[in-house]
Amino acid sequence: MDGPVAPESGTPSSRPTSTPVGSGPAGSSAVADAARTGRGPVRTCIGCRRRGERSDLVRLVALGPATVVVDERRSAPGRGGWLHPQHSCLELALRRGTVARALRLQPPVDTTAVASWMALNGVPAAGT
């Protein structure tokens, strides 16, 4: 018999057998695609919730109980959250409260250092 066997009846179960993630066109995912193509690790933006390569996102970390800064080296100790370097993603994350949640901080959080970092690094302001 092919397929899994139902333990009580000895007949094949109605559940389809699982296929490995990324093994076919319908099972592809960003994580599997990254692994298959040899690209770097994949992270999820806390603002827009889209996946992207680690090198395309910036890491945010808590500095004290309510201040959030950009971890430029991406290696600071503690919890971190990943964000596309776009003002729209920062605004979404603040509106949804995901910055505080991802870093396990009590809201409100101060993200002026993140906005300043974006301005210093040439990230265009939202709506421009």
Rank of each mutant, 00 (worst) to 15 (best):
G40A: 00
A125T: 09
P108N: 07
A76T: 08
A66N: 06
P65Q: 08
A34N: 00
P25L: 13
S23V: 11
R101Q: 12
C89Y: 02
S116M: 05
G10T: 12
R74H: 07
A66Q: 08
L92Q: 05
T37P: 09
A34I: 10
R95G: 02
R104P: 00
R73T: 02
A126T: 03
A26W: 14
A126W: 09
V69E: 11
G40H: 15
V68L: 08
G24E: 14
T112H: 06
R36M: 13
R96K: 11
V58E: 02
L90N: 07
G81V: 12
V61N: 07
L103T: 03
R96H: 11
R73C: 13
A115E: 07
Q86G: 06
G97Q: 10
R95M: 04
D110R: 03
T111H: 00
V68G: 05
R73M: 04
P77G: 10
S13E: 12
L90A: 02
L92Y: 06
V61A: 06
A26Q: 15
Q86I: 08
D2W: 05
V61H: 03
R104Y: 06
L105I: 05
V5E: 00
A34V: 00
E8R: 14
T98R: 11
V123W: 13
R101T: 03
A115Y: 01
P7E: 06
D71C: 13
